[in-house]
Simulated assay, not measured.
Amino acid sequence: MSDSGAFDLDQYLAHIGWEGERRADLATLRGVHLAHMRGIPFENLDALRRTAPSLEPADLMAKLVHGRRGGYCYEHNTLLAGMLEALGFGVTRLAARVVVGTDRIESRPRTHMTLLVEVPGDPQPYLADVGFGAIGALLEPVPLAVGVESHDAGRRHRFVHLPQRGPLELWMLEAYAGEKGEKGEQDGGSWLAQYAFTLEPFERVDFEVINWHIATNPRSPFTQRLFVQRVAAGRHLLLHGSLLTETRADGEVREREVADEAEARRVLEEEFGIEAPDGMTLLV
């Protein structure tokens, strides 16, 4: 059952700054996806307080659209899915294993939410994902096809097939990470695995369980330290614990430590557009 009717499409599009067409076509899909990525930050403030954020449409609207807050994958992609369905796209919710930082796919549970989107009249499905909290995240949806390198708003992605462990094909999303050469150009980089998934549909109730686990389990990375990111044209900004990292499109990286709670709150407000709840400790 779709929740698209419970979302306010007008308010959502105004919040992310999308003024283009409202058609179920590829141009609209790409435009809305990129506008969402640049318009709503990724953050784990609820999980840092060991509180599972609500995935109810009204609560997502209140927090991500009307409030000075962001969210993590279940919130972002549930919101986007509802809006895309309201526009007339077909959406299948998928669960993926994040493999950044590990060589063993089976060592990670399926805890990431991503979306398979069907464009009316287009036989090619697309992977859309506005909730992946990493610099290798998609900026625009990319075609789900092996052997095709996609350039999405300056980033590069591709899919590879992995050996099957069951009856369904196993897909891996990879992102290209370039390195700066002697003259400053991007070269000598490599393809880095981001997450693996099958095309098995997952339902809202599945993500309610996963959401609760990730937000409340003391071993979850999202309950350990602050994790906030925002994408802008030409740069990616990340606050991980007390470390603020700015990565520019040309590969230049700048880092600095946030000194204390007061500065952390100021950085959240000025750099990310986030108003942290009163009384919460940010630098744990």
Rank of each mutant, 00 (worst) to 15 (best):
V91L: 07
G70V: 02
V258P: 01
L115N: 04
H112P: 06
G133W: 00
A215Y: 01
Q164I: 04
T198I: 02
D25W: 01
Q229M: 15
S107T: 14
R49L: 11
G184A: 05
N77T: 09
P218T: 06
R22L: 10
T198W: 01
R38P: 04
R254M: 12
A177N: 07
A58M: 11
W171V: 12
V228Y: 00
R165H: 12
S190M: 10
R165L: 11
S54M: 07
R49S: 15
I16R: 00
T245D: 06
I105L: 13
V148M: 09
E118C: 05
G71S: 09
R235T: 08
V98S: 03
H240C: 11
Q224M: 10
G131K: 00
D3I: 05
P218E: 08
D122N: 15
T51H: 09
Y74D: 07
G273E: 02
E75A: 10
Q229H: 07
L116A: 08
E246N: 05
D260Q: 05
E263P: 03
L60V: 12
N77Q: 11
R235L: 15
A232N: 05
E149D: 14
A177V: 12
R158S: 07
V209A: 15
R69F: 04
P125L: 07
A264Y: 01
V253L: 09
A145C: 09
G234T: 06
Y126P: 07
V209G: 02
A276T: 03
L192G: 08
Q224R: 13
V284Y: 03
Q194Y: 03
D260N: 14
G121L: 08
L115W: 02
E43V: 04
I40C: 07
E149K: 06
R69K: 08
L144Q: 06
D8E: 14
F89M: 11
L199N: 06
H240F: 10
T114F: 01
S2A: 09
M61G: 13
V231I: 14
R93T: 15
M172A: 12
R235A: 13
P218I: 11
V267P: 01
L162V: 08
L268V: 09
H112N: 09
E140G: 06
L9A: 13
R158H: 05
G5M: 03
A86R: 11
G241I: 03
L26M: 09
L64T: 03
G31V: 05
I214P: 00
G90F: 02
E118V: 04
T78H: 10
